[in-house]
Design a protein around this nucleic acid. Structure first.
Lengths: 224, 224
DNA sequence: TCATTTCCTGACCGTATGGTCAAACAACAG
DNA sequence: CTGTTGTTTGACCATACGGTCAGGAAATGA
């Protein structure tokens, strides 16, 4: 928001560049440390070490530990909001919810740390992002519920409670990030392969789409 | 295991009584504090205050913070394992999985703190209960997968990946504990009512049972 | 070149935390 | 009553943490 349009291909001043680079570096390190240790267990020293910077340098870019933490939480929240676009442009539940599951599963795979930080924050009563829950998230949720209700009214899916369906989608997709360690352990101690991820995604989609009675509609040639 | 048979109606010695009472008091306080603040954020002082005991007294019963924490995690794990009994004695997926969802949802409602502590522990890489994941949990999971596979082979439900079905069950039910604060916030800042809990449970059961193609079988007079 | 702004960092500080300990206290056995 | 064992607790300690700061190093602009 505060940065100009040109993101890559930069030379908009070395100063700006350094700042952007270091802030990003610190945020990525922080995301990992917060995910692994929680807010209370994370230390600025650990984050600094992982980022390869002296601790005092962190405080130059982020005044307090909480400031840094807030940024990390906001990052994942924004990613999730963007993923919901697939949801909106859909013609019906199969497209919309299917694409949403795909997107959320992909995020769980690519940004497991961010997901964990969010989970941790919410579990501890959302002391830092309570306002987000009460404004942005609530609005977003209400909007999506309205869309699902439309589909139900149009007979495109079964009459299920849209809110709890949403919770199921969140729970199921984020589980693969938040409980990734447990899943890996039950997988013999190794991360899920491409094939296993595909199977997870397909199983989730199959059960939920079947579960809400959403089939056919649109083109039926799509055998994935 | 170490205590004699008589649990209530006690006077098996005041000493034993005091110890049992205080350990339980401390464990309950610890569960809440660990859930709210995470392992790193929790302090022995906070737990002591909540339990109404001086801090030094905690260390008399539990040598270290980690010992106390381990006990709390073990407690919820045991509760979950017991809940799986419904799963075993079932004739088919409707009974088995339906009852399992009921049980897990009930636990999410009654023991949200324990669930949160478990989630936190796993999210942070299970530093304390890794052995449980690799032994007890893995065995339990394999057993349940075998049962589900039986049902699939018998044509009692659709051909879905049993492992990912299990993950869906865990994710969905525990979500109502772990993300309870988010759910409450989206519910206007109030906890779910009895009716809302019932609706949540019914929605989850309906979608999943429908999703795995498990209907009829047994008596069909059960209109819930 | 020089002045100014931004960036970097080692050393430091106050505080809070997990854990210890010795001394007091209560329950029991004989 | 007397010794013994289990329980309670205030005071204490070493450590580690978040955060500060002064002063130096680059970058930028004139």
């Amino acid at each position: 928001m505060a940065t100009p349009a040109q993101i890559t291909q930069p030379k908009p001043g070395k100063r700006t560049d350094i700042r952007r680079e270091n802030e990003s570096l610190i945020r990525r390190a922080a995301e990992k440390v917060f995910a692994e240790a929680g807010f209370g267990g994370a230390t600025m020293q650990l984050i600094a070490d992982l980022a390869g910077l002296p601790k005092a340098n962190l405080h130059y870019y982020f005044a307090t530990k909480e400031d840094l933490y807030r940024r990390v939480v906001q990052d994942i929240f924004e990613i999730w909001l963007n993923a919901a676009a697939c949801f909106d442009n859909a013609k019906g539940p199969v497209d919309g919810i299917g694409a949403y599951i795909d997107a959320k599963m992909e995020i769980s795979r690519r940004h497991p740390d961010g997901s964990k930080v969010w989970a941790s924050e919410v579990m501890h009563g959302a002391p830092v992002i309570q306002d987000y829950l009460e404004t942005t998230l609530r609005d977003w949720t209400d909007g999506r519920i309205a869309i699902i209700q439309t589909w139900i009214d149009a007979g495109q899916m079964a009459h299920v409670n849209p809110r709890h369906l949403l919770y199921m989608l969140w729970a199921t997709t984020q589980h693969y990030a938040d409980f990734g360690h447990q899943i890996d352990t039950l997988n013999g101690g190794t991360q899920l392969s491409d094939k296993q991820w595909r199977e997870a995604k397909d199983t989730v989609k199959a059960i939920i789409l079947q579960g809400i009675g959403a089939r056919q509609e649109g083109a039926q040639g799509k055998t994935t």
